[in-house]
Design a protein around this nucleic acid. Structure first.
Length: 376
DNA sequence: AACCGTCTCAACCGCGGCTTA
DNA sequence: GTAAGCCGCGGTTGAGACGGT
């Protein structure tokens, strides 16, 4: 592949917003001569812009064929339908909507539809309702992130420059971040327990060998801790940390009220391919189910007959919360936590810190719980 | 009125595909 | 076959608008 042609910021070419004079020059030239070669156009039209910038300005704004104003209901439906089939192929979607540009559709999708679908409890990428399985997946990742973070914390505490105030401060920050991960873990469990139908929880518990279910929450919590270092944290022995450090971490754990028993189930309408298949084929055998599960890519395909209720849709509230949390976690790559080198001033837990500190304070999490958990 | 956070959307950037020599 | 040049796409950014406090 060849090198990219330089764009815009070299040879004194202008960038940024277009002036009315520039617009007029571009429109005049294209109306007289057509755009021809975009690369050659700016010079011929007397513009100090690159061809790419001219093409974009014309295609997305100046072209008189562009339709302005709000998207009609019909247009919105077409966009949703096409996006479900095509994904983010904005230019292809735009080709089905005369007068609309790919950029306009993309912006509209990102600012309106995405939010709208999330509020409806529909995943904007897959166009399927989120299930409680999604929440379980998020939950099951937390222990790994905790382990990575804790390992770095342990490295910090044994660093040769441990006596430096800088490292002590970093360590203090890191312990609070770890504590907040545990809080997040607890929030997720509460969300799940508050929104999942009891039949789903029972099935899950049965699968993991809990024959009687006196306290759903307790069993689920223990299950989720099985591969977690949270348990070790509570025992005061996390990944070789000195006892005083784990004691400090424990003291940082906010003391929120324990979860209360859920009251009601949520919408159990079949909403994805496998659910519809199952509801239409109540007499299908395990083999059929396995084939169907593989076809619809629902994990775990080899155990689908043991999860008759695991396909129940999560509530819109649950979906929204899962998406919010996923967005926070995905936008901050926890696995990239690095120890600070002596030559840098970056903080050890910057990625983790961003997750928790952007919304800042404990009050944010308190509000989060008040809004999303306790009220459920 | 001032400040702050959120939303919107025009514009930019980097990449990859296609065409041409 | 391949290197160079151009174009278009999708993701991202950031300035301005807007609304709430």
């Amino acid at each position: 592949m060849m090198g990219r042609s330089p764009c815009c910021n070299e040879n004194g070419l202008k960038k940024g917003p277009w002036t009315p004079e520039e617009d007029q020059k571009l429109v005049d030239y294209i109306q007289k001569h057509g755009h021809g070669s975009w690369r050659a156009l700016p010079k011929l039209a007397g513009l100090k812009r690159c061809g790419k910038s001219c093409r974009l300005r014309w295609a997305n704004y100046l072209n008189p064929d562009i339709k302005r104003g709000k998207f009609s209901e019909d247009e919105q439906q077409i966009i949703i339908n096409l996006h479900a089939v095509l994904g983010n192929k904005w230019s292809v979607i735009a080709s089905h909507l005369p007068g609309r540009t790919d950029n306009e559709i993309k912006n509209f999708w990102n600012t309106h539809f995405k939010k709208k679908l999330l509020q409806m409890g529909i995943d904007p990428v897959t166009h399927r309702r989120r299930t409680h399985h999604d929440l379980i997946n998020v939950l099951s990742n937390l222990p790994q992130w905790l382990a990575a973070a804790a390992a770095n914390l342990a490295n910090l505490s044994t660093h040769p420059n441990w006596d430096d105030n800088f490292f002590r401060l970093q360590h203090s920050d890191a312990t609070q971040v770890l504590a907040k991960i545990q809080l997040l873990h607890n929030i997720l469990i509460q969300v799940l327990m508050s929104t999942a139908p009891s039949s789903y929880i029972e099935t899950l518990m049965n699968h993991f060998g809990c024959s009687s279910i006196p306290d759903h929450h307790q069993y689920l919590y223990e299950f989720l801790q099985m591969n977690s270092n949270l348990e070790a944290l509570e025992n005061g022995s996390i990944i070789g940390l000195p006892p005083q450090i784990t004691a400090q971490m424990q003291s940082n754990l906010p003391n929120y009220e324990v979860y209360q028993q859920p009251q009601s189930s949520v919408n159990a309408q079949p909403v994805n391919g496998l659910e519809i298949y199952m509801s239409n084929n109540s007499d299908c055998d395990d083999h059929d189910l396995q084939l169907a599960a593989e076809y619809y890519s629902f994990p775990p395909s080899n155990d689908i007959h043991r999860y008759p209720n695991s396909l129940v849709s999560a509530s819109p509230e649950c979906c929204s919360i899962v998406s919010q949390i996923e967005n926070k976690l995905n936008s901050n790559d926890i696995s990239n936590c690095q120890l600070p080198s002596s030559s840098t001033t970056s903080t050890t837990f910057e990625p983790l810190g961003d997750i928790m500190e952007n919304e800042a304070s404990d009050s944010y999490w308190k509000d989060f719980i008040d809004e999303h958990v306790v009220s459920l």
